[in-house]
């Protein structure tokens, strides 16, 4: 089965006054049909820029400098802007962290949704409204007919995120890219959204890229997980495998830094140091300054090791169950 999305050697760089900032550096991955992929990493690791690159939303001074993004076999990077517009929002949709920033505050939700429908489909206004109402109902918004005439500020944070999801679903896309969509929400509301998105993805057979810094959320939601550090995917594989037997020291560091990893009251085990500035990353493995397993060889670039069901970039991977 061909994957929905096949990203090959994607690099997105920002040309700043202080030098070239390699936000995404030679990233390759695929997303299969109906697959939920979690993309995790700390702030500045390039996970959001990866999502933006796929949709062609990187603004200058940023630029996709190389690579291929094959969506159902077509290279999105070679596509003229007009053709890209027919895909963006229709075949690939995006959900952002803060729906207050993506919804227009002076237009009612209904107006914005009808506009989205009409942008891609030649249907009557009445039918567009009908479809908008159905979409609102689908994501669990009570009395959708009345809510169509409400403005974004009249919704709570969780409801606004549901509206954003409803807009993403309007055209039944093949792929949804969700960028930290539950980070700003409370635990009980986050749980509701995760529940809905999982149900809907299954129902419509959509593939999903879920960008998050929260390993717990990805563990509960995703089939496969990709861990990014300093612009590169350092480890990828099935969620169960990666979380129980991480190969890359960064992944295992992330896992043991959470409070649940040590008995109550004992000191936590943070990864020492902090992420290098994207403008002055060390040569070779960018993690080596913080890594307990690093040796001289780490000053050279680690190649991608592909084992059964697992990819990682490390000269000294954990073998077997990590501490």
């Amino acid at each position: 089965m061909t994957p929905v999305l096949d990203v090959k050697n994607l690099s997105t760089h920002f040309m700043t006054r202080r030098g070239v900032l390699k936000a995404v550096d030679d990233v390759s991955f695929t997303v299969g049909q109906r697959e939920i992929v979690g993309l995790v990493g700390e702030s500045g690791s390039g996970k959001s820029i990866t999502g933006f690159s796929i949709l062609g939303l990187v603004d200058p001074p940023g630029r996709v400098v190389s690579g291929q993004i094959l969506f159902n076999g077509e290279d999105l990077l070679k596509m003229p802007p007009t053709a890209m517009r027919t895909i963006r929002g229709k075949r690939i949709a995006m959900i952002f962290q803060d729906p207050m920033m993506t919804l227009n505050p002076v237009l009612s939700v209904g107006t914005q949704m009808v506009e989205t429908v009409l942008a891609h489909d030649k249907v009557s206004r009445a039918e567009a409204r009908q479809r908008s109402r159905d979409a609102l109902g689908l994501v669990g918004i009570p009395s959708p007919e009345e809510r169509l005439d409400s403005y974004p500020h009249q919704f709570s944070g969780g409801m606004r995120q549901r509206v954003a999801i409803a807009i993403a679903l309007l055209h039944r896309p093949d792929l949804i890219i969700a960028d930290e969509p539950t980070t700003a929400l409370d635990v009980t509301i986050q749980s509701q959204i995760l529940f809905e998105i999982k149900r809907l993805a299954g129902e419509f057979g959509m593939a999903l890229i879920w960008i998050s810094h929260d390993l717990g959320v990805v563990a509960a939601l995703a089939d496969r997980i990709m861990v990014m550090y300093a612009g590169k995917i350092v480890e990828a594989g099935q969620v169960d495998g990666v979380l129980t037997e991480p190969r890359h020291p960064y992944t295992s560091g992330l896992l043991s830094a959470v409070p649940a990893a040590v008995p109550r009251g004992e000191p936590l085990r943070p990864i020492p140091g902090f992420a290098p500035s994207p403008l002055s990353r060390p040569s070779g493995c960018a993690f080596r300054d913080r890594c307990a397993r690093a040796t001289e060889i780490c000053a050279t670039e680690p190649m991608l090791e592909i084992a059964a069901d697992r990819e990682f970039r490390c000269f000294h991977p954990h073998l077997g169950r990590a501490a």
Partner: peptide
């Protein structure tokens, strides 16, 4: 119950209904 956890690969969410 709703606290997401790395060790807990529970695939079913049972959210409490409604908003605050």
């Amino acid at each position: 119950r709703e606290l997401p956890s790395v060790t807990d690969r529970r695939r079913v969410f049972t959210p409490i209904k409604g908003e605050i």
